[in-house]
Design a protein around this nucleic acid. Structure first.
Ligand SMILES: [Mn+2]
Ligand SMILES: [Mn+2]
Ligand SMILES: [Mn+2]
Ligand SMILES: [Mn+2]
Lengths: 215, 215
DNA sequence: ATAATTTGTTAGACTTGTCTAACAAATATA
DNA sequence: TATATTTGTTAGACAAGTCTAACAAATTAT
């Protein structure tokens, strides 16, 4: 039986592995709000269970088995987020923290029912793909808004940060998922971006443009 | 921060206290599937936190504070069960075990939303009253079907056992919550009961009649 | 009233998940 | 290259929640 802590570690390692930088002790420590030696002892345990591969002073990567388990939890998390938004009427900025708890419910029936009610959904409310029952993910080829050339128009399909603060900010400035965004201008110095969304011109900072995924 | 284990102990002690027999170590041990010495050490911890009152070799009772916390968890449990039945389409025999997990979700928003969606419901799918936000319960005066005189007709309003086995049995023999039940005859020896429900005559064992609450 | 049985308690061990303090390796800086 | 800084590891402690073995109190049966 997988514990709650184990599930959070697997998920965090999976998510960090998606960046080029990979999963290291210090990044995990920051992400999970846990001191470094704790990471060390937990990762050793996960390695004993053959869920991660790990060599001292190198980073960690999930084994096949570890990745499968991580994706099960991620599926529960994303299904939950969509259920909270679509069926329960929460805003997209409210659901991440609740899903962080609900994802640990063991009952498979509970999530199968969500899946049924939502008719096998493919994306969560932040545009992230929901792994299917076998842990398969559609491969997406998204770009950062920060890297799009001036003059182009792109479609906003996902965020890479689901914190309440960031999502509330986007809502406040009138940018919602699946909007079309036209790049009007970009300041070379700091990436400050002038865009047009729904005929309204707005300015976004470089940091924000780094968190917006488009196609 | 209340832990999951603590919440389960508080709830179990509360429920046992509702019987005349009160809450004893051995009954808690059976209810929570935990060995006797574990009960002992946990109850000592709860007593340190002033959640239960406890004297060696006597039973335990919840303090005011302990009772308030127990009722918070019971509220979450019963709201969840109703949400699962009414909104998610589960059967009444499927929801207890899922609610046993969901009741430990910390987010108050999650349960406030359920309450809103269900419009401040008063009873769970097993007929048990849902404590309000302040822990208040409507006082009900229910009788056991086993004690009703021959010839009377009563209304089935609650069960005292929400196990899947028991509830499936009731559904199978066509007895559902809020049915009217007429007592046709009772065997003195073992309480075997002949009843009429929806114009159909059925026979129930004494044990079953002890778990059906009527008014 | 004594003995047998049931119920409750204490002592001590173990696992999980966390911490701090001390130290070692790797990396960056001078 | 030598030194300083950052990152990772080991050792050892601790709280929570569980267990088994041994024993003591309370209750029931003889
Ligand atoms: Mn999320
Ligand atoms: Mn989580
Ligand atoms: Mn229940
Ligand atoms: Mn529970």
């Amino acid at each position: 039986m997988r514990t709650l802590a184990e599930e959070n570690y697997l998920k965090a390692i999976y998510n960090l592995s998606q960046n080029e930088t990979g999963a290291t002790a210090s990044k995990l420590s920051e992400k999970l709000n846990v001191k470094l030696p704790t990471i060390n002892s937990m990762v050793n345990k996960l390695a004993d269970k053959e869920l991660v591969e790990y060599q001292k002073y190198k980073g960690f990567i999930l084994t096949e088995k570890g990745q499968k388990q991580a994706l099960e939890v991620i599926r529960k998390h994303r299904l939950t987020e969509l259920f909270l938004v679509k069926i329960m009427g929460f805003g997209w900025e409210e659901v991440h923290d609740i899903a962080e708890e609900v994802e640990h419910i063991k009952s498979p029936l509970f999530f199968e029912k969500m899946d049924l009610i939502l008719s096998n959904p493919k994306y969560d409310p932040h545009g992230a793909p929901i792994p299917d029952k076998n842990g398969k993910l559609p491969k997406t080829n998204l770009k950062l808004l920060a890297n799009i050339e001036i003059g182009k128009t792109v479609r906003f399909v996902a965020v890479s940060d689901s914190s309440s603060d960031f999502l509330s900010y986007l809502s406040r400035v009138g940018i919602s998922l699946y909007s079309n965004i036209e790049i009007i201008d970009r300041e070379v110095f700091d990436g400050l971006l002038k865009i047009k969304v729904n005929k309204i011109t707005t300015t976004l900072s470089g940091q924000v443009a780094e968190k917006i995924l488009v196609e």
